[in-house]
Structures are given as structure tokens and as C-alpha cells.
Design a binder for these strands. Structure first.
Lengths: 187, 187
DNA sequence: ATGATCATACCAACCATTTGGTATGATTCA
DNA sequence: TGAATCATACCAAATGGTTGGTATGATCAT
């Protein structure tokens, strides 16, 4: 690990491009994510961009999968740390979606929205991913209370990224309430 | 309604442009809403478009306000028809958001998403509108169960427009469950 | 070791298309 | 006639993508 920086470091450039795209989407909105803007933000030229990605679409897909992977890792950890089986997945999902910096860097979730909603192909990818996770935790699927809690988390997330979300202390109350909803019926 | 063809009717052209924009956004996504596409869909040229709207931004804003007005009318009706005071607004909101053709033409809600999320100014407009409605029905605001139900409705709506929504019968079950959540605690 | 060889990583300039917007002229209505 | 309504033709800017070329570093025969 030499201190003299490697002059060519393709992996880092590729990573920088991915991060730059997410950062720009977070900072200035979806429509400002252009190939040139991403390249400039990463400190590189368009030529380099198209060396690493065959198209802008490919970059978007890469950002998407990158975040999906992060989300998967977060969920797996949270589920493993949860001693109560019932509603595990839903609780982890609530945390991941509701805490802005759950997946790593802050606000990166806006990029998920950007990738997901603005593109039909990735929209299907998101749907399939969610269906897959629900299949992995089949017991969380049909339960109507858990379903409701997950949709409420989605709604809160939508509010957060669209600026009409709850105030911070309201958010904490809501999260606690949603988590309470995931507990088994107190029969 | 004369059979003699083609009298000029500027109001109708303006309406057609608004409807065309919403229709295109619904059919083919946000980024396909261009002034040329909207003009063509309305059976008119760009010249006519810019005669009725000073900019594309103005068109988007008009679509937004148009749908807001429709939503307001729908909510007012639903609230007036609801004999139970507690949770009136939230129930009306659930219906409006959860039933695709609640506001009039089918699927027009995607245009709300398009107008709201893709534009900072209109995002603020949506937030202010929602805050205003909640102020009108202050009793529905802080109640955590009602808050949860509204956010869940938002989440369902998000799923519907992003293709990852619940199946039709699941949707009916969910709506019923959300409506049940709005009833006063059975003390 | 060292020089030739070659693939990878990157840059700078350019291209084709699309987009929002404008200028101007033709019709239509009052 | 004169104002409103629309069409045609055009423009400047931005965008995704391409091209030709350069710099760097790994490989390998010598």
C-alpha cells in the first residue's frame, strides 16, 4: 500500500462515478444527473465514463444494484440481530427505509427512487427484488398488519424524499408505532 | 355542439393540452412528456402550445393545480358523506389515493407524482397543500393511528404507480384494513 | 535487468439528436 | 379592420454517444 498514489486506478474511478451519480441525484435532483455532470463530479472526462460504462443506462443500473446490495446486507444484519421471529423482515425493512442513513452514506436512498421510478426496467427489478425478499420471509408476506406497516414505511420514505415527510420527532414516534405493529398479536 | 366542423375553441384546446400531458405521463412515463409530444397528442402544434402556456413549466403547474382541485372536490364530497366525524379526512384520503380512478379519469394520479416529485417548486406546493388540508381537519393530524393509515395509503399508491403494488384483491383487503384503523378506539 | 510489445485507462474534440423556446406568417372570429 | 388563434420554420443549448489519439503499466523474451 504505497503512499504514492497509483496513477491509474480503474476500480476507484468506477466507484467514484457511481458515488458521484448518487451524490448528484441526492443534491440536485434526478434531471441533473447527466453523463457530463457525473464525469466532472468524479474528476474525470466523458471518455473515461464511457470506458467504464457502455451507456448511461448501465451506470444507472449499476447504482441501483449497488444500493440493492447495500440494502440486502443491512436487512440480513438486522434480521440476524432480531431474536423474535415474527415480523423480523418487516422490522428490518422499517428501519432500513425509515432511517435516512441506514444503508451507509446519508440520503443515498433518493438515488433508489431515481433509479426505480424513472426507469421501467429497473422498476421491474425493484419489484422482483421485493418479491424475492418476501418469498425468503414468507411468514411476513400475507400478514395484513405487517403489510400495512411496510406500506406505511414506504409512505414515510416517500414523504421524506419529497420534502413532505414528518418532523424528526414525529418520525421517531411513527417508527416506534410501526415497530409495535409488527409484534405478534398479544392474544 | 355543431356538426359543422372546426370552429375554433381555445378553451377546449387548453383542456386538451392538459389532458394530453397527464395521459402521456400515465402511458409512457415522465420523461416522455415533451411539449412536442403533448402538442401532437392534443392534435395541435407547438405554436398553439406556447400560445396557451408561456412555458412548459406553466403547463406542468397547470396540470398539478388541476389535479389538486379534483382531489379537493373528491375529498370534500367524501367528507360530507361521512357521518362519523373521527377520521373523516383520513378515510377520504385513503379512498382518493387508493382507488385509481377516484379523481376522475383513470390513472391520472401518475401525473401528480410526475408533477410533484420531479419539480422542487411543485413539491413545496404539494407539501403546503397537504399541510393546509391537515390544518382544516386538525383532529386527524396528530393522531398516530390516522397518521399511520395515511402513510400506508401513500405507500400503496407508490407501489401502484411503480408497478410493485399489491394485487387487486390484496388491495381491497388492505383498504378495508386501513379504513378500520381510522375508527375511534373501541374504548 | 531491460527493452519491445500490447492491452488497459484515459483525454479532448466532435457529432447527431432532442428539447424548450422564438419569430413570423396565415386564418379565423368579433 | 383588428385582435385572437394557430401553423411553419427556425434557433441555441444540452445531451448521449463516438472517434482518434495518448499515457500508463503489465508481460515476456532476451
Amino acid at each position: 500500500m504505497s503512499l504514492t498514489p497509483r496513477r491509474k486506478q480503474p476500480e476507484k474511478v468506477r466507484r467514484d462515478l457511481l458515488d458521484a451519480a448518487a451524490r448528484i441525484a441526492t443534491r440536485a435532483g434526478v434531471q441533473t444527473v447527466t453523463v457530463e455532470a457525473v464525469s466532472a463530479e468524479a474528476g474525470v472526462t466523458k471518455g473515461a465514463f464511457f470506458h467504464h460504462f457502455p451507456s448511461k443506462q448501465a451506470l444507472v443500473a449499476a447504482v441501483f444494484h449497488d444500493l440493492i446490495d447495500r440494502l440486502d446486507a443491512y436487512l440480513a444484519d438486522a434480521i440476524a440481530a432480531d431474536p423474535l421471529p415474527h415480523g423480523r423482515f418487516t422490522r428490518a425493512y422499517i428501519h432500513a427505509v425509515t432511517e435516512p442513513d441506514a444503508g451507509g452514506s446519508d440520503g443515498l436512498w433518493i438515488a433508489v427512487y431515481f433509479a426505480t421510478l424513472s426507469n421501467a426496467e429497473l422498476r421491474d427489478g425493484w419489484r422482483d427484488w421485493l418479491a424475492g425478499r418476501l418469498a425468503d420471509h414468507a411468514e411476513d408476506g400475507p400478514d395484513i398488519a405487517l403489510q400495512t406497516a411496510r406500506f406505511a414505511a414506504d409512505g414515510i420514505w416517500l414523504g421524506m424524499i419529497s420534502g413532505s415527510g414528518p418532523a424528526p420527532d414525529d418520525l421517531a414516534r411513527l417508527r416506534a408505532h410501526l415497530l409495535a405493529l409488527t409484534l405478534p398479536p398479544s392474544q
